[in-house]
Design a protein around this nucleic acid. Structure first.
Length: 400
DNA sequence: AGGTATTCACATGAAACTATTCTCTGAGTTAGG
DNA sequence: TAACTCAGAGAATAGTTTCATGTGAATACCTGT
C-alpha cells in the first residue's frame, strides 16, 4: 500500500515537462493556422454570403490527411458564428464527421445526428428513414435560418452507402420555404468525386478547393510553434523536432501525425522519468504509434475477423507467402478449436481484402495459370508487433 | 514449333437472409371512480 | 373510463450465405511442318 502511495506522491511532486498538453491533442484548434492563410481566405470568400443570410455556392474541399482541412474549416466556422451572433444573423453551422462509427456512417444516422444538433433526439432505430427526413425538414423550416452543413470525410460515407443521401441533401433547398442550406464537403480522397452521380457532382462541387500537403520545413515550423506552448522551455533535445517532421514529411506531409508523434514522445519521456525529450523517445514513439494503430484496428473487429488474422499468424512462421485456400484450411481448424461456426470461403475472401485495406497484410491477386487464381498473402507487420498481436488474439479468442 | 482451348481456384457482385435492437400500435388488463 | 402492460408488426444495421458470373495464365491438345 505504502509503495503505491509513494508512487502517487512522487508523481505529484515530479514536475511535468508539459506546460499545456492540450495543444498537442488533435481536437485543439490553434488561433493562428500556419501556411493556410490563402486557403482560409478562399473559403471565407466563398462562405461570406452566409452572413447576409444568402446561400453561397456549395463547396468541396480536397486534401490528404493532416493538411489542415478540418482545422481551417472549424476555425472559419467559429469566427463566422461569432460575427453572426453579434449581428443577429440566424446562421447555424453543423459539423458532422461521417467516419465516426455508429454516429454518422449511414443515411439514417447522419440525418439523426443532424436532428440532434437541432436539439431533438431521435431513436437510434425503429423509425422509417423518410419519417426521419420529415422531422428534419420540419425542424429546418421551423424558423428562418441559414444552415451550413459541413460533412467531414464524406468519401467514407459514399463508399459505404452510395451517393443517394448526397442527392437528397442537395435537393433539400427546393423543399424548404424559409431556410436555406449550404453544403461543405471535405474529402481525403482526391479523386472522390469521379465516381459520383453526375447530378450530385455538379451541385455539390459548385466550388472546389485543394489543400496541398505541407512540406518538411512547414511542418517543422508548425511543430515548433506548438511545442513552444505545449512544453516547458529547453525540454526538447535539438534535432527531435527536425526528425519528427522528417518522419511526417515522408508520409505526404501529414501534420497531424507529426503532432501526435511529438506528444507521444513527450509522454514516453515523462513516463521514463526523463526531463528532456530525446531522439530515442521519438523513435519509441514512432513504434508505439504504429503498433497502437494496428492493435486498435484489430481489437475493434469482430471475432471471426480476428480468427482469420490468427490463422494467418499461425502459418506465417512456415512460409512467407500463402494463398486463400491455405488460410481457409487453417481457419477451419481454428473454428473447430474455438467452437465458432465456420464461415464460407466467400466471406473469408472479403475479410482478407479488408485486412489488406487495414495494411496488416499484403494481398495481391495473382494467377497461377492452370492452378488457378488467388490472393497471395503475406504479413506486413513487424516482428515485435506480431508477438503482441498474437497474445492479444489468443486472449480474445480464448486460445490457451 | 506454334497456336488455341481448357481449366483451375479462387475473385467479385448482387441479392437475400438472420439476428439483434429498437419504436410504435393497439388489444387486453387493471385500478379507481 | 383512464392508465398501464405487453405482444406483435415493422425498421435499421451488421454480418453472413447463396447463387451467378468473371478471370489470368500455365498446361493440354491440336495442327501443320
Amino acid at each position: 500500500m505504502a509503495q503505491i502511495g509513494d508512487f502517487f506522491e512522487n508523481f505529484l511532486k515530479k514536475e511535468s515537462i508539459f506546460l499545456n498538453k492540450a495543444v498537442l491533442m488533435s481536437a485543439h484548434i490553434p488561433t493562428d493556422i500556419l501556411y493556410r492563410e490563402e486557403q482560409i481566405q478562399e473559403v471565407a470568400n466563398i462562405l461570406a454570403p452566409l452572413l447576409r443570410t444568402e446561400r453561397p455556392s456549395n463547396l468541396f474541399i480536397y486534401g490528404k490527411t493532416g493538411t489542415g482541412k478540418t482545422l481551417a474549416v472549424k476555425h472559419i466556422m467559429e469566427s463566422m458564428l461569432e460575427i453572426a451572433k453579434k449581428n443577429n444573423v440566424p446562421l447555424k453551422p453543423i459539423y458532422v464527421n461521417c467516419k465516426l462509427k455508429r454516429v454518422a456512417d449511414t443515411e439514417y444516422r447522419l440525418i439523426a445526428q443532424l436532428i440532434k444538433d437541432f436539439g431533438r433526439d431521435i431513436p437510434s432505430t425503429g423509425l422509417p428513414t423518410d419519417e426521419v427526413y420529415n422531422i428534419f425538414y420540419k425542424l429546418l423550416d421551423q424558423e428562418k435560418k441559414i444552415v451550413l452543413l459541413i460533412l467531414d470525410e464524406i468519401d467514407q460515407l459514399t463508399k459505404k452507402i452510395g451517393d443517394e443521401i448526397l442527392y437528397n441533401l442537395t435537393r433539400i433547398n427546393a423543399e424548404l420555404k424559409q431556410s436555406q442550406i449550404c453544403l461543405l464537403g471535405i474529402s481525403n480522397n482526391l479523386v472522390f468525386s469521379e465516381n459520383l452521380d453526375p447530378r450530385v457532382k455538379s451541385s455539390l462541387s459548385e466550388e472546389e478547393l485543394i489543400f496541398p500537403p505541407y512540406n518538411a520545413i512547414q511542418i517543422q515550423e508548425i511543430l515548433k510553434s506548438r511545442a513552444k506552448v505545449a512544453f516547458k522551455e529547453e525540454v526538447i533535445q535539438p534535432g527531435v523536432i527536425e526528425k519528427c517532421s522528417a518522419y511526417a514529411a515522408r508520409e505526404h506531409g501529414d501534420a497531424r501525425r507529426a503532432i501526435d508523434l511529438l506528444r507521444v514522445s513527450g509522454e514516453l519521456a515523462e513516463r521514463a522519468g526523463s526531463t528532456i525529450v530525446k531522439i530515442e523517445h521519438l523513435d519509441d514513439a514512432e513504434r508505439k504509434v504504429e503498433s497502437d494503430k494496428i492493435i486498435n484496428a484489430i481489437v475493434s473487429q469482430p471475432k471471426q475477423f480476428q480468427s482469420v488474422l490468427y490463422s494467418i499468424i499461425l502459418i506465417s512462421p512456415q512460409k512467407r507467402q500463402f494463398y486463400t485456400g491455405e488460410i481457409y484450411e487453417v481457419y477451419k481448424n481454428i473454428c473447430k478449436q474455438t467452437k465458432f461456426n465456420v464461415l464460407t470461403q466467400r466471406r473469408i475472401s472479403d475479410i482478407l481484402a479488408e485486412l489488406d485495406m487495414l495494411g496488416i497484410i499484403n494481398a495481391k491477386i495473382i494467377s497461377k495459370g492452370r492452378y488457378g487464381r488467388t490472393r497471395e498473402v503475406s504479413l506486413s507487420v513487424e516482428e515485435n508487433i506480431l508477438i503482441k498481436l498474437r497474445e492479444i488474439l489468443e486472449k480474445s479468442l480464448h486460445i490457451n
